[in-house]
Design a protein around this nucleic acid. Sequence first.
RNA 1: GGAGCCGUAGUUCAGUCCGGUUAGAACGCUGGCCUGUCAAGCCAGAGGUCGCGGGUUCAAGUCCCGUCGGCUCCGCCA
Length: 594
Amino acid sequence: MTFTKRTHNCGELRTAQIGKTVTLNGWVDGRRDLGGMIFIDLRDRWGITQVTFVPQHNAEVHERAHELRSEYVLSITGTVQGRPEGQENKDMATGEIEILVDEFQILNRAEVLPFEIEDEVEAHEDLRLKYRYLDLRRPLMQKYAMLRSSVYQVVHSYFAEHDFVEVETPTFIKSTPEGARDFLVPSRIHRGKFYALPQSPQMYKQILMVAGFDRYVQIVKCFRDEDFRADRQPEFTQIDLEMSFVTAEDVYAITEGLVARMLKECIGYDVQTPFLRMSYDDAMEQYGTDKPDLRFDMKLVPLNDLVVNSGFKVFADAAQKGGTVTGFCVKGKAEYSRKQLDELTEVAKKFGAGGLVWMKVEAAEMKSPVAKFLSPEILAQIQSAMGAEEGDLLLIVADADKRKAQKAAGSLRLHLGKELGLCDPNKHALLWVVDFPMFAYNEEEGVWEPEHHAFTSPKAEDIEKMDTDPGAVRADCYDFVWNGNEAASGSIRIHDSAMQTKIFERLGLSDEELQEKFGFLVESFKYGAPPHGGIALGLDRVVAILAGLTSIREVIAFPKTNTALSLMDGSPSMVDERALKDLHLDIRKEEKKP
RNA sequence: GGAGCCGUAGUUCAGUCCGGUUAGAACGCUGGCCUGUCAAGCCAGAGGUCGCGGGUUCAAGUCCCGUCGGCUCCGCCA
């Protein structure tokens, strides 16, 4: 097809170009056909320009323009002219000019669309996913894509400046037993064997450190076959990095520099470094989560000391049995109705609480279903400890399992924070959560197992407690938390083959399994592995946060649904019997439900 | 694996609790009028497998059972 190529894009013409003959290519964003006069908004990636058809200028062209419809693809040629006095559109970047059309060509026609191309989209997400090419025509979606692209640019330039090497690691790798479920790829050449898609390039980047690359970075696709959420997709992108001869401090510094730069260059936000640091224990105690959202306060206040001897069994038992009684103060919400409080109780139960105790701070007294079980002195102490004033609502959870109570209270805090709109949407709260426990006790197996991936080093000063007091050993790992999202996670790695073997043994791996699964890594450590550590940022989450979104699907061009379907192309799909045969696979008949 | 919400015109929804005339609205679409619109306006019109399957009933968008799909959450995600 021959057509007249554009001389300008649809977002750049201003009064300076008045009088020039120009050609624009683009889509019909809308039309206003006044009969004697036709206005078309022509759209491309850069903006919208109004083009005008009038019969006295060119009667034949004006007549043909009646046919134009939404999303037709056009090439139009005409003269830039200033709009008449009072007809300027201040809401448009190009609103002071318009194109008086001399000639136009329809490059393609469009059927009526399933939904309109506009930022305030009304269509349900499944429809948007099926017609993703239309969804992505929306300027807002293109803005998100461009934001993402600007993040790539920052990553590449920042790490180049800091002397990192970009290396691509394989997509078909060995399946390993622990961690998330792997996506598997059957081998045609090796009957009955499978590759796995990487959950992260963890072992490869460590091998690159052994190889002496010193500083590695990669923007890389990772795959995890677990259940999906607004912030979790089967395939997602990491900014993966690793450095040699470093401590956690060096990883913090390089990450903080990157994040500050992304905030500055991508959305013009200034942030102070270094970021706040908080221990895992403090995060759990004050926020009931290992990824606290610090955009609003409403901290949890442990009440154990106040209630341990209170005589109120629910509180006293929890405190005495090593659990906790904890809660927070909701400012000005003593007005909540019984119905609202019942609903909050249901929410708390969903988050694992056995129940929810509420107290309303009223002028004369504390009003609560449990007030009669607690002395006025203790009630006053609770009010004081929680910083409550008249008109406030206190919400309290108790459980003999400390973490369970904290998590329930923390989840409820977050739920209310969102519901009450306590987050300042223009604020970014960034922090490191550190000092995670190295091991967690597995009640069923009766053993201490690593909490983090098997390559995480214990903190040097805690190594001596490995055998005597595993519960007290802290891991040399760190999470970077951004507005309540786990935006990055990393650690200083084990670089000693004996220590690595010891940790694998903790996982219950036999020597044979160890050799089979991780032998190459352990072996590499025998040939001069430098101390090293790194981190991986979830790029999709980072872009979503920068865009002020909660769903990463909005910043992924072609995302999958919660059930891992691609509604546009219909994957996954059945394959030919022939293809299965090549892969030595049979599909088992569905097992009958009992 | 579990819980909640949702599925009705091209789209977003109302109607479902309490079964009953021809299933409505807005936007979009089609046609007409219209020379300064920019959410154009005015007039007229077309448009429905009520997600799918089964059941109850004289009668089902509405009640029951099953199933498919979407979203949110719990579990899961080293």
